[in-house]
Amino acid sequence: MTPFTSLTGIAAPMPLVNIDTDMIIPKQFLKTIQRTGLGKNLFDEMRYTPDGREIPDFVLNREPWRRAEILIAGANFGCGSSREHAPWALLDFGIRCVIAPSFADIFHGNCFKNGILPVTLPQAAVDHLMEDAQKGANARITVNLPEQTVTASDGTVFAFEIDPFRKHCLLHGLDDIGLTLEKAAAIDAYEARLKAERPWV
């Protein structure tokens, strides 16, 4: 996993609440057996007409947001299906950070497994950044994970909270499975206990 430290980039504004994973990556693209290549279908049904032409109004079809690395969105981002294809599609497009007032649980967890930083900020802060993002190339937003801050183009700084363990893994690009396997002895001991106490499991 690519580590995430800090990022300064163009942020795409998506002022919609409840952006669900069906919107982020519609089901017809879940038939892949790979993790890569989904970026072109990110927000497919909002981004293209049924015959595959770009919808000019959609933010990711417009300059400079075609090059967005950050997404600013409304509350409950990523609700719905557990499909990890959603963060895979964001990553493949080039989005490394999503900022919203709240996230759905499974999507939030999936981001961390893929080097994407989900930043939760109060509605007023998100509104400020949303307005900033509308300015396009003139508004580059900086996200600093070690400092846990987001800086708007006017210099306003917003601090965010993050779970220390997840921060550590993201900063160092750590592989969860490798970390867990270091605790194999604890899992072995648990299984021995389970066999004695609840043998029917």
């Binding site: 993790r35 557990s82 499909r83 990890e84 963060p87 499974i106 967890g109 999936n110 497994k113 893929n114 779970d163 363990f165 969860d176 499975i177 970390l179 867990t180 396997l181 194999a184 899992i187 299984e191």
Partner: peptide
């Protein structure tokens, strides 16, 4: 009982555990 992403599917396959709070 709850849903998980594919990275967690791999984690459970490999370790029979999930990292959780």
């Amino acid at each position: 009982a709850h849903g998980i992403g594919t990275s967690e599917v791999e984690h459970v396959l490999a370790t029979q555990t999930l990292i959780q709070k």
